[in-house]
Amino acid sequence: MGKKKMKNDRERTFALITIPIVLLFFCFNTLPLLKGVFYSFTNFKGYGSYDIVGLRNYMDLFSDSRVGNSYLFTIKYAVVCTIIVNVVSLILALGLNSKIKGKTVLRGIYFIPNILGGLVVGYIFSFFFTYILPAVGQTLGIEALSSSMLSSTKTAWFAIVLVGAWQSIAMNTIIYISGLQTVPEDVYEAGSLDGATGWRKFKNLTFPLIIPFFTINMVLCMKNFLMVFDQIMALTKGGPSQSTESISFLIYNNGIDGGQFGFQSANAVVFFVVIVAISVCQMRFMGKKEEQL
């Protein structure tokens, strides 16, 4: 009898905790998501009255060159950043995990960029690209560097890649280090008996063992870089001539201030689908890789 009462108390308490939490989550996550989907079928400007226009926003989306360019830029940015960040942080992690002096201090230093806010870091780098780098270029007589990277449509995107990478490498390095620490020492000993050294040792011994960490880093990187906003806001505000407008920036800029509430909602819905699709693909692909090994 007493036990049953206890069980009921437990179930009731769990239900009383869960229901308000689910309601809260629904109100500020699912409900706005549904509203966003609804607005994507309207010509709402953000104020005043509006009509339902069916799929017109979606049709327009595919013929709008500004939206198309923002997708091209964002995906190019995310892919290049993800590759650079993972290559550099893997090398850095191998270095920081080897037998070096002052390991703790060095690890602490390399992690600093991760704790700093993207916007302020962007402003600092903006000055670097606008004044310092051109001055260096002029002094050394390097034509390509002698004008600001941020003012050319050809190079501005890469400047943003550098800033994004500078910040993200810190995080990925730490994750790779914790991955490398799970590799048992005797694996290396067995390997060195077989004469495995350098690149071969890394490719055949170390890397297969840290693939789960590689997966985490790829998925995290891709997702974060696809949502890039702060760096754009600080470095270029989408310029020059709209060449660095990320999807998030375009939705913010034209959706909130530009009177394209309905249209940008459609953009956001497509963006959401793209993010989910990319993340699922990545995890599937990596999952298969892990199974093979």
């Binding site: 706005p32 939705i251 909130i256």
Partner: peptide
């Protein structure tokens, strides 16, 4: 909910 980007919630949330 982790996969829902802020961009899609942003405009409805401003209103809400």
């Amino acid at each position: 909910g982790m996969f829902v980007p802020f961009a899609i919630l942003m405009m409805p949330l401003v209103k809400q």
